[in-house]
């Protein structure tokens, strides 16, 4: 893989060059309460990389919460909303948990039938990753087999070496734009790889816990009928959907029509949650997942079993946002530990 060093003082220049090719740059910044948030930035000073990852994942830039799909005219039927997302944009400073989540979403939205709304944004995205040095107390990426310094899935990947960043040009797109930055790049050194390993070890030591899931991968469906295991958590759950809204791989949506006048209107999609009561509700009144136990079980099994059955990959990346968002303190790691105990005694 092509590698270079970039002096941290040149970050501003880096962004200036980047902006010529990718007009919008999204990065973790601070909101008015000093909490990290992914948003459009205009200068290197706004970038904040030394805090835990923002609680809202960058999925809204590829899959917005409310998105117009088409307009309609009663006399003429439906016209698709022009997907004029020709604006190229870059996400700067996504950690491996978020990069892997975007990788999963690419797989999902492109599986069998292609989703053009997602794809048009994804095609215009440059994903610049960064090694994670500041995990939260809820993070568990290593449990899901993801290293806090792995670059796969990104276009280019930065690692903090102290005064410099190590820049790895990972994908074909990344390699193609390397030339634009030639003036500010210097040679990578052989010892830089060791720094990555050091960061990985340090970050790993900060994680509250790591659970070995290799033995139970693919077998989690066997806990389907163990209702007491699920009820321990679903009794406490308030079915609010906060975990699904903040999860970077949750992509369920509702499609609705909205009248603007008697003759025309729009059809839009908006985030929906499998934790809501009416998610599966049939018109007849029958509800296949009418109890909280069924819905909580569905979420866990989807993340840890069904996604493997369908796409051969965990859809959870261990970013810990579900644990951070839960108003009643449900801990997904506890659920995984309970499942492991149930299957292995």
């Amino acid at each position: 893989m092509e590698k270079n060093r970039l002096n941290k003082k040149d970050l501003g220049n880096f962004l200036t060059i980047l902006k010529k090719h990718y007009s919008n740059i999204i990065s973790p910044g601070l909101d008015d309460k000093n909490s990290p948030v992914f948003r459009l930035i205009n200068s290197a000073q706004e970038i904040v990389l030394d805090k835990i990852t923002p609680i809202k994942p960058p999925k809204e830039f590829l899959f917005p919460q409310s998105e117009e799909l088409m307009t309609y005219d009663k006399n003429d039927s439906y016209t698709p909303t022009r997907i004029v997302e020709k604006t190229k944009f870059a996400i700067f400073g996504a950690r491996p948990c978020d990069i892997k989540a975007i990788e999963y979403n690419n797989l999902f939205f492109g599986n069998k039938f292609n989703d053009p709304y997602y794809q048009s944004k994804r095609e215009n995205l440059l994903l610049i990753g960064i090694s994670c040095e500041f995990p939260s107390s809820s993070c568990f990426c290593t449990t899901m087999g993801i290293s806090p310094v792995e670059s796969s899935g990104s276009d280019l990947f930065l690692t903090n070496l102290g005064t410099d960043y190590l820049v790895e040009w990972v994908s074909d797109i990344g390699k193609a734009i390397q030339q634009f930055f030639a003036e500010i790049l210097t040679e990578a050194k052989p010892e830089d790889e060791k720094m990555k390993i050091k960061i990985e070890e340090t970050t790993r030591s900060k994680l509250v816990e790591e659970i070995n899931l290799t033995e139970i991968k693919g077998k989690i469906i066997q806990t389907y009928d163990k209702e007491d295991l699920w009820k321990n958590y679903s009794e406490v759950c308030i079915a609010c959907g906060a975990c699904t809204f903040n999860c970077p791989t949750c992509t369920c949506f509702d499609v609705q029509e909205k009248m603007e006048s008697l003759e025309n209107g729009t059809r839009y999609r908006t985030w929906d949650s499998c934790q809501f009561y009416d998610f599966c509700l049939h018109a007849s009144g029958h509800n296949p997942r009418g109890t909280k136990m069924q819905r909580l079980r569905q979420r866990i099994l989807h993340k840890y079993q069904y996604s493997i059955d369908q796409l051969n990959q965990w859809s959870c990346t261990g970013c810990g946002r579900c644990i951070r968002s839960c108003p009643v303190g449900i801990n997904t790691r506890s659920i995984l530990k309970d499942i492991k105990e149930e299957l292995h005694g």
Binding site: S137, N232, E235, V236, I323, V328, G329, I330, N331, S334
Partner: peptide, 12 residues
């Protein structure tokens, strides 16, 4: 205790 530091969780 929920397992997440500093977070208590309800129990039935």
């Amino acid at each position: 205790d929920s397992g997440t530091p500093g977070v208590m969780t309800p129990i039935f």
